[in-house]
Structure formats: structure tokens, C-alpha cells
Design a protein around this nucleic acid. Structure first.
Length: 575
RNA sequence: GGGCGUGUAGCAUAGCCUGGAUAAUGCACUGGCCUCCUAAGCCAGGGACCGCGGGUUCGAAUCCUGCCGCGCCCGCCA
């Protein structure tokens, strides 16, 4: 109810100064009511009793009287127990809805455009994408869409793991398997583990693997060619998964570790120039105040290993410099699991100390919890290994297909397949995006694919029901744009309240990087619609009411569809 | 041992940043509602010492503090 607060504030301004209360004393008292049963907006006056030396309910009574008729056409005001309660008038609500109706952006404002780099997904070359990449990819994709919608230039960066010591063994393994063979034939599900097993058991293999790393780092053409084969094979896999998931990432967004490899020595030099580097057991490290290891000794951030190799931290520092100097961004988001919180805290601190970023740069680790199985442990396959993301997505669509086939046998095979994809993928994404990302969440097929509750199918169904109203009578959706919205029934008014909360929820979701705040509001809207639709006939209503309700339906559908799209979820017309 | 996160009805969650009234939502449960626009839905009901103890405050799920449980992290992996 941000809009109502904004509308009431100027009215209170003069009243409050008249009774002798400074703006700073009441400014943040005026806010959305904690309980919508009382009011839309409320102002508790208890803290003012110190200033005015009067009882809270006397104060709220006085303010109510002073407001007089100024709130007419805006809201009803009452004074109870020291609270001023403001309830929006239906005319004011309908004015806002009509604004939204003719607005492609549904009253969502754009912000002053910033360049925002979002680092997400980050799978590893030569490995299958697995469930560990799910949340980063889904949350990152949603934030990408949401922030772009708010008017920012989002630069997605997929920091794939395509460099480092494991590539020695991977390349040698590729050679062993026959380099002439088509890279299409590389089986990513076993490639890495096969190579690792040989590396651990075969000393001849491990020694040539180590030699291969050196050749790779000196950019020996033959080695790079083999490396590129592995990368290319993996990109085909990544893109297959991304396409199936419907996320925005493409090859243009790749910013793998190999991209930064050549500038790492420069990073070391810069840190040395700043006097930050120290030597410890042959490694070059930075010690930061306040960080201690298990033994209580100073904990370093390792910049260069004793063997001369580099770590993830160094690559991250190079990334920061690149993003600020070359991409021109001052907003860096890292959609990475919560377990890496310490790593990022240290990296950001070093980057600041080294002058890579000043205080005005927002480098933010956006952490998330684990995906748990129903056994309460980190989700794993039956054999204990990581669950392949592709398999998960395929299963989601298969399960959705079976449900749709049962619920709506009339759909053609083609349409059912399309709907199943939207429902299945939507269900997985929504399950992830509808709760606070910092919680661990339990992966449950039945729950996420249920048509009841706070799920993607429930929201999609609400949308599809509205579409079917329009198609039933062959009514053009755009025909309602100039409709007069008349809110009479309490459930029409409840739906209106839900709808005007959309822009606010989106803004809140963006500023806190918490997509669930948008998801929660969409669920409120879908619920309010379901409740409205049950008792408010649309097509069978009289002229003006019918047009008004059609407009309300259209606005609801557009809000659900747009909101879901911002979460990366499609809304079928029929299901 | 230190750090980060988390704990809210049987279960899953929102609310915590920025304190406000009878703690909200979903699943499950109980009962009701289809000759009428998708019942894949809707309505009603029961169910919570908001982990525990202190503190601050007129007022604490929310802020501070101490415990407890759970998860994760704590030097050459990423």
C-alpha cells in the first residue's frame, strides 16, 4: 500500500505540524497496516505521547478530527486504540487499476539505469550440469529479468570452470580415448570421474597429466586444441540444459576462468605493489584483519599457490577488476551458494584494500541454501552421486505431461507437450523462487507440481482460466483497455487491493534480490482472483459490470503473466 | 574452537532489514459448495507459550544479549 501511504503523507503534513509534531517524529510511523483486517495503512500514535504528553488515543482522535474531509475520495479514516487506520476507497483503487490497464508496464516504474553484472550458473567443463547448479541458474535468471525490467542494463556472466589443474588429466584422458573421435561422443556423465579415477590410481597417467597442465598453461597449440574440444562439447551440453530450462544465458555471456588466466600475474603484481602480499609456505597470500583459522592463527586468502598456480580467489579478483574497468559496472551480484560466504567476504575485502573497487561499488554476494532431498540430506541420486540437471528437467516435464493428460484429455498431443513443458519447468523454478533463498529447501515433486497451494501450476491455472473467459466469447483482450472499472463486490475490491500491490512487491524483490517477494504477491493475486471468480459472474453480468469485470480479469491475467515471466516462468493460455 | 546462516500449528513457509493491534499463507485434517464463465476451483472450521532464558521499550516473532538444536564454512579445490 505504498501508493496510499504516499497519498496520505501530504495530507498529514500540515495536520501534524499544526499539533506540534515534527516530521521526523511521525514520518516512519505511517506504513502499511500489519493486519489488513484493520486497515490498508495505519499510523500508531503511541510514541507521540512522549512529545505531546497526551494519551495515544487522544492524539489519534485529534488527528482524525483535524484531517476532516481532506481524505474524501481517497480513504476512510478511523481512530482506534491510538491507531489511525486508513482504508482505501474503492474509487481510488479503481483509478489506480485504470492507470495500470492502459500501461504496458502495469505501473512498474523504471529506475535510473545502472550496469549490473550478475554472475550465475557457473557449471564446470567436462562435467554434467547437476542439481548444484539449479538454484544459481534459476535465481540468477529471475534477477536478470527483474532488474532488466526495472530499466537496468544487466550483463549476465557465466563463470564456467574451464581452466585449472584438473584439465591436465582431462586432456590426457581425452587423448587416451582417441582424439580423432567426434567430441560428440564424449560421455560427460562419466568423463570426469573416469579421468579422476585413473589419475588417482595410475602414476604414469598422473605424471603426464601434470606435464599436460604445464603445456596448457604455456598455450601449446596442440593442447589448446584438445582443451577447446572439451569446452565445445560442454557448451553443447550447457546450452541444451539452458534451452530446456528456458533461461536467458547464451555463449555471449561466457566469462570462464580461462578468460582471466592471462591477467592473473598482473593481479599478483598489483597486490604486491600495494604491499598486501606476504609469503607463507611458498605461497603468496593476503592476510586480512579478523580472519582466523581453526587453530586461531591468521587465515590468509591464497593468491598464488606454492607451485605457481592460481586459485579461484585470484580469478575472482581479476573478474572484479574487469567488470569495473572494462564492463563499466558498479553493481556486481554473485548468485552463489551460502557456503561460499566467507570466500566472497574475503575477496571483496581484498579488492577494496587493493583499490580495485571504491566504496561506491556494490559487490554483493547473493547467497542461497541447499536443495535437500526428502531424507533431509543434500539432494543426491540413488547411487549417492549428484543428480543431473538435465534428468531432473526431463522428469519434471514427463510428470507434468502425465498430470495434464489426466486432467485435460481434450488437449492435442502437441498442445499437451507444450503445456507440460511450461508446467514442469515452471514448477521446478517456482519451488525455488517462492521461498526465501537463504533457506535450504526440500525438493518434492508432488508438492511443486500440485495445483493446490503456492505453486506454479496454481498461478498458471488462474491465468489460463482468465484466458478461457475471453476465448469463450471471442472477446478481444485489448477491448477492455478503455473500460471503466467499477468496484462494488467485496471480492472485486479484494482483488483490486492485491493487484495494486504488484509494483511494490516487484521493487521490494529487486532491491533485496529476493524473487520470492514477487512470487508471494503473485500468489496473493491468484488467490484473490479465484475467490472473486467464484462469486462474481463475468460473461453473464450486465453491461457495465461485465465490461468492468472483463477489465479486471484482463489486468489480473496480464499481471500474472508478466510477473511469472519475470521469474522465468511461462503461462499457457489453456491447460 | 571460531565464523556465517537457520529455528514460526502435524508438515512446508511469509512476516524480521524499517518494533505496533487478535501472528499471515499453503499442504494435510473436519464440514460444506458444481442443471451456471475450467471443481485443476471456492467457502467455513479446528490447530502456534514465533527454539529457550534475560534485556531494551508504552509495546518484541521483529532490536540487543546468553544459551540450545540444525546446516554450511574455516590455507594452497572451486
Amino acid at each position: 500500500m505504498r501508493d496510499l501511504v504516499d497519498a496520505i503523507r501530504p495530507l498529514l503534513n500540515s495536520v501534524m505540524s499544526d499539533i506540534g509534531v515534527q516530521e521526523s517524529d511521525w514520518d516512519n510511523l505511517l506504513a502499511s497496516s500489519t493486519d489488513s483486517a484493520f486497515a490498508d495503512v495505519a499510523m500508531p500514535c503511541h510514541s507521540l505521547s512522549k512529545v505531546l504528553r497526551k494519551a495515544p488515543n487522544t492524539i489519534s482522535d485529534e488527528i482524525l478530527e483535524s484531517l476532516g474531509s481532506t481524505t474524501e475520495g481517497l480513504c476512510q479514516v478511523s481512530s482506534i486504540n491510538g491507531f489511525l487506520n486508513f482504508s482505501a476507497d474503492s474509487d481510488w483503487l479503481s483509478d489506480l487499476l485504470q492507470e495500470a490497464l492502459i500501461d504496458d508496464r502495469l505501473r512498474v516504474l523504471t529506475e535510473e539505469s545502472r550496469v549490473i553484472v550478475i554472475d550465475y550458473s557457473s557449471p564446470n567443463v567436462a562435467k554434467h550440469m547437476h542439481v548444484g547448479h539449479l538454484r544459481s541458474t534459476v535465481i540468477g535468471d529471475a534477477l536478470n529479468r527483474m532488474l532488466t525490467h526495472k530499466g537496468h542494463r544487466v550483463v549476465p556472466e557465466n563463470h564456467i570452470g574451464d581452466w585449472g589443474t584438473p584439465f591436465g588429466m582431462l586432456i590426457e584422458h581425452l587423448i587416451d580415448m582417441g582424439i580423432d573421435s567426434d567430441s560428440q561422443n564424449i560421455d560427460l556423465s562419466t568423463f570426469y570421474s573416469d579421468a579422476r579415477a585413473k589419475f588417482d590410481s595410475d602414476s604414469e597417467f598422473s605424471s603426464r597429466s601434470r606435464a599436460r597442465v604445464v603445456r596448457m598453461q604455456s598455450s601449446e597449440p596442440e593442447t589448446i586444441e584438445l582443451w577447446q574440444m572439451l569446452v565445445d562439447r560442454s557448451l553443447i551440453h550447457f546450452n541444451e540444459v539452458y534451452q530446456r530450462m528456458g533461461v536467458l544465458l547464451t555463449n555471449d555471456d561466457l566469462a570462464g576462468e580461462s578468460k582471466y588466466e592471462s591477467v592473473l600475474p598482473r593481479i599478483v603484481d598489483k597486490l604486491a605493489e600495494r604491499g598486501l602480499l606476504e609469503e607463507s609456505d611458498g605461497a603468496k597470500v593476503v592476510y586480512l584483519d579478523g580472519w582466523k583459522n581453526r587453530e586461531g592463527e591468521p587465515l590468509p586468502l591464497i593468491i598464488q599457490k606454492a607451485d605457481g598456480g592460481y586459485n579461484y580467489a585470484t580469478s575472482d579478483l581479476a573478474c572484479i577488476l574487469d567488470r569495473i574497468e572494462n564492463v563499466g559496472s558498479r553493481d556486481l551480484l554473485y548468485i552463489v551458494g551460502a557456503e561460499q560466504a566467507q570466500h566472497f567476504a574475503m575477496v571483496f575485502e581484498v579488492a577494496r584494500s587493493a583499490g580495485f573497487m571504491d566504496e561506491g561499488v556494490n559487490a554483493i554476494h547473493v547467497p542461497f541454501g541447499l536443495v535437500m532431498g526428502t531424507d533431509g540430506k543434500k539432494l543426491a541420486s540413488r547411487t549417492g552421486g549428484a543428480v543431473h540437471l538435465n534428468d531432473l528437467l526431463i522428469e519434471a516435464v514427463e510428470r507434468a505431461d502425465a498430470i495434464v493428460a489426466e486432467k485435460n484429455p481434450l488437449l492435442s498431443n502437441k498442445e499437451r507437450a507444450e503445456v507440460a513443458k511450461m508446467l514442469g519447468i515452471g514448477a521446478i523454478k517456482y519451488a525455488d523462487l517462492s521461498t526465501d533463498r537463504s533457506n535450504n529447501y526440500t525438493f518434492q515433486w508432488e508438492k511443486m507440481l500440485s495445483f493446490d497451494g503456492n505453486t506454479a501450476p496454481y498461478l498458471q491455472y488462474a491465468h489460463a482460466r482468465i484466458c478461457s473467459i475471453f476465448s469463450k466469447d471471442g472477446i478481444d483482450r485489448d477491448s477492455t483497455l478503455d473500460a471503466e472499472i467499477i468496484l462494488v463486490h467485496e471480492r472485486e475490491i479484494a482483488l483490486a487491493r492485491a493487484l495494486i500491490g504488484y509494483p511494490e512487491a516487484l521493487d521490494s524483490a529487486c532491491s533485496s534480490h529476493s524473487p520470492h517477494k514477487l512470487a508471494t504477491q503473485l500468489h496473493v493475486i491468484a488467490q484473490a482472483f479465484g475467490s472473486f471468480y467464484e462469486v462474481c459472474p463475468v460473461l453473464n453480468a450486465e453491461d457495465k459490470t461485465k465490461i468492468s469485470r472483463l477489465a479486471l480479469c484482463d489486468l489480473t491475467a496480464r499481471t500474472l503473466q508478466t510477473g511469472l515471466e519475470l521469474l522465468g516462468i511461462d503461462s499457457p493460455q489453456r491447460m
